[in-house]
Structure formats: structure tokens, C-alpha cells
């Protein structure tokens, strides 16, 4: 009763959130795809004077080597989306699988997995990245994705385990078992649909954090090496000239913020329309 009155404005807000999220993320996706076939200037070549401000020719100005910043930010979108999707993909696959396994497992295996998640979460991502670089013999975009993916898998694993345990206690799981539903059926028909919305929101959050973390790794030489124009590296490069050419820091910063916010809004909106109990009834 109480909820009904509040449902309509909430639903409108949800669809607004979703629309803005789709627009922001969609913009980055379109730009990233575009860079595969076309960029305004050669990303590695001189395109104008050094540290020029924004102009019609160079929307975001140029860097200290005279390269077009807007071109680099566009390519940064591609890198950011690759890192985010790759890291969250790896993290989700490992984390959700192990989390569900832990929720179903015997006491001993559950304890072992829970401890493993906690240790991995406490482990500094930086150290993890260094270990991955050592193991793969080179610092690359891939090693950064793998390291971030592993770090995310622990967070996702722990969350999945808790969510899954809560669902497994519900009577509808017992009802499913007495109806003859197999364990696989219970996971795919009942468990995943009920924990998915919460996981999705977490994935979006992790996506944003992964984009930011990749920037730090790049700066330390543990991520994508130059000439890959990650936004993090652009920010670092602009640091020294932030007083003389502030736009060099503002532009990649804006790109980063729009993607992260867009991702969060997308997830929030999806969660609200995906949950039948939040939909308006009758």
C-alpha cells in the first residue's frame, strides 16, 4: 500500500536514469568503435603547435608534443571500455562461479573459498599487477586487465556468496527441490535471476573503478605502454602543465567522469526496471 503511491515517480526517475546512462555510455561506445576506422588526426603525429588551447581545429587543444588531444581522448574511450569490460568480464566469470560454488558447498570448502576471497581483497591491486606482469613477462593492456579482473573476482565472489546464501534459504528453493528441480535448474531459474540485479549494479561500480585503476597502473608502467592513450596517462602528462594548459587535464577528466557516471546510471536504471516488485502493479 505504502509503496504504490511512491511507485510512479520512482519509475519515471528510473527510466530517466536509464536514458541518461544509455546516452553517456552509448556515446563512449560509438566513439570507441569510430576510432577503429577513423580519427580526426594521426594520434601519434604532430597536428599543430604545442599546448594549444581548444579551438575549432583542435576541440580539446594539443599536448606538449603538439598531438591532437581530442583524438587521444577518443582512443582513450576505446582503451577504457576494453579494460572495464575485460576486467569485469574476467571478474564476473570467476567471481560468480566461485561465489555460487561456495554458497552450495560443504562447510569446509565454503570456509576455504570465503577465506580466499578475503585474502585476495586485502591484497593490494598494485602488488597483484606486478605479480601478473612478472608471470606474463610483459606489461601490457592484457596484464592490466588480468590483474584488475582477479581483484574484481574476489569482490564479486564474496558478494555472490552472501547473496546466494540468502536466496538459498528461501522456501521457494525448498519448493523447487520438492518439485524435482535439479541443482542446475535452481541456479539458473531461481538463483541467478534473484541475485543478478544486485550483481549488475556492482559490476558497473567495478567497471568504473577498473577504468580509474588502469590509469594508475599505466602511470606506473604496469598498464598499457605508450603510445596507448589511456585517460590516466593523459592526466599524468597534463599534470606538469596544469597551470599553463588546464584543458589538457580537464578534457580527459571529463571523459572519465562521464563514462563512470553513465555506467552507474545505466545499472541503476536497469535494476529498477528489471525488478518486478518495483514495477507498478495492476
Amino acid at each position: 500500500m505504502t509503496a504504490v503511491a511512491a511507485t510512479e515517480p520512482r519509475r519515471m526517475r528510473a527510466s530517466l536514469t536509464l536514458s541518461v546512462g544509455i546516452v553517456l555510455v552509448g556515446l563512449h561506445v560509438v566513439v570507441a568503435l569510430l576510432t577503429l576506422v577513423w580519427t580526426p588526426y594521426d594520434p601519434a603525429g604532430m597536428a599543430g603547435g604545442r599546448l594549444e588551447g581548444p579551438s575549432l581545429a583542435h576541440w580539446a587543444g594539443t599536448d606538449r608534443l603538439g598531438r591532437d588531444l581530442f583524438t587521444q581522448i577518443m582512443i582513450g574511450s576505446r582503451i577504457a571500455l576494453t579494460v572495464g569490460a575485460g576486467a569485469v568480464g574476467i571478474g564476473a566469470l570467476i567471481g560468480v562461479t566461485l561465489g555460487i560454488l561456495a554458497a552450495f558447498a560443504t562447510r569446509f570448502l565454503d570456509d576455504v573459498l570465503a577465506a580466499a576471497f578475503d585474502i585476495l581483497i586485502a591484497f593490494p591491486t598494485l602488488l597483484l599487477a606486478m605479480l601478473v606482469v612478472a608471470a606474463t613477462d610483459s606489461a601490457s593492456l592484457f596484464s592490466a586487465i588480468l590483474a584488475l579482473g582477479l581483484a574484481i573476482s574476489a569482490i564479486v565472489g564474496r558478494l555472490t556468496r552472501i547473496l546466494a546464501k540468502r536466496v538459498l534459504e528461501m522456501d521457494y528453493i525448498t519448493a523447487a527441490r520438492t518439485a524435482g528441480t535439479s541443482w542446475a535448474g535452481i541456479v539458473f531459474i531461481h538463483l541467478l535471476p534473484n541475485i543478478w540485479p544486485t550483481l549488475l549494479v556492482n559490476f558497473a561500480l567495478q567497471f568504473g573503478l577498473a577504468v580509474i585503476a588502469e590509469a594508475s597502473l599505466s602511470y606506473l608502467g604496469l598498464g598499457a605502454p605508450p603510445p596507448n592513450a589511456s585517460w590516466g596517462r593523459l592526466l599524468q602528462e597534463a599534470q606538469g602543465t596544469v597551470y599553463t594548459a588546464p584543458f589538457g587535464a580537464i578534457a580527459p577528466g571529463l571523459a572519465l567522469v562521464t563514462l563512470v557516471i553513465g555506467m552507474n546510471m545505466l545499472a541503476d536504471g536497469l535494476r529498477d526496471i528489471g525488478d518486478p516488485t518495483r514495477r507498478r502493479s495492476r
Binding site: M170, Y172, H190, N194, T277
Partner: peptide, 8 residues
Amino acid sequence: YSSLDPRQ
């Protein structure tokens, strides 16, 4: 309340 899957 608990015996019916809310998402089905």
C-alpha cells in the same frame, strides 16, 4: 511470501 520466487 518466501515460497514463491518473486521474479517468476
